[in-house]
Simulated scan of single mutants.
Amino acid sequence: METETALAALAALSHPTRLDAFRLLVRHEPDGLSTGALVEASGLSQSTFSTHLAVLAKAGLVVSEKRGRQQIQRAGIDTLRALMTFLAKDCCQGRAELCEPLLAELTTCC
């Protein structure tokens, strides 16, 4: 992942509404949620939420697919994985002992 791509993803996640929406989508993988369900969960108007959704999509954190008459939103897991890897590799600088506690926590969280 390039630095600019990581910055775009981090910026997209830096807003509470977008972070909440993304976390909700991650919890609903691999099925995703309809746009309407996301709007309802956010408590915002359709137009306001669509702006937030567009920011997440532009950063690759949300992928939209049409299923029948509904637009289903899914978390961009590949982008999340790339971002997490980018951050861990950069912060650990090849020193595995720095990231071992993080890896241990990730394997016990789910």
Rank of each mutant, 00 (worst) to 15 (best):
G68H: 06
E40N: 05
T35V: 14
A75W: 09
L87K: 05
G43H: 09
H52L: 02
L80V: 02
Q73F: 03
A37K: 08
D78E: 10
F49V: 02
H28T: 13
S50D: 04
V55R: 06
G43W: 06
C91L: 11
F22I: 12
I72T: 03
T85S: 15
L83P: 06
L61P: 10
L38P: 01
T48L: 11
S50M: 03
A54D: 03
S64I: 04
L83I: 00
H52W: 00
V39I: 15
L80P: 05
L61Q: 07
G76P: 12
D31V: 13
D31H: 10
L25V: 09
S42C: 06
G60E: 00
Q46A: 13
R27M: 13
T35M: 15
T79M: 13
S47K: 13
G94W: 10
T51K: 10
L53F: 07
S45A: 13
Q71N: 14
T79P: 05
S34W: 00
S64R: 15
T79D: 01
G60F: 07
T51L: 04
V26Y: 01
S45P: 02
P30S: 13
F86R: 12
R81P: 04
D78K: 11
S64M: 05
M84H: 08
Q71R: 14
S42R: 03
V63A: 12
L87Y: 08
A57Q: 10
D78I: 02
I72Y: 06
G60S: 06
Q70H: 15
K66I: 11
D78A: 11
K89T: 03
G36P: 02
L25M: 02
C91M: 11
Q46P: 05
T48E: 09
L80A: 12
Q46G: 12
L24G: 00
T51C: 04
R95E: 15
V55K: 08
F22G: 03
V39N: 00
G68P: 12
K89R: 14
Q93Y: 01
R74L: 15
P30D: 01
L80E: 07
A57H: 11
A75G: 12
R67N: 01
F49Y: 11
G43Q: 05
G76T: 03
I72H: 03
A82E: 04
Q70L: 15
T51E: 02
F86E: 11
E29V: 11
L24P: 05
L44S: 07
G32K: 06
I72Q: 05
V26Q: 07
R81Q: 10
L61K: 12
R95G: 02
A96F: 12
S42Q: 04
I77K: 15
G32R: 08
F22S: 09
R23E: 13
R23G: 04
T79A: 08
A59R: 02
G36L: 08
L24A: 04
G94L: 02
S45M: 03
G43C: 07
G60K: 10
A41F: 05
A75K: 12
R74V: 08
G68N: 08
D90N: 00
G43D: 05
P30I: 13
A82T: 05
E40S: 15
K66W: 00
G32Q: 02
M84K: 02
F86M: 06
A37F: 01
V26F: 03
C92V: 00
L38Q: 01
A88V: 13
K66A: 02
L80F: 09
K66M: 10
L53M: 14
T85Y: 14
A54E: 07
A57K: 14
R95H: 10
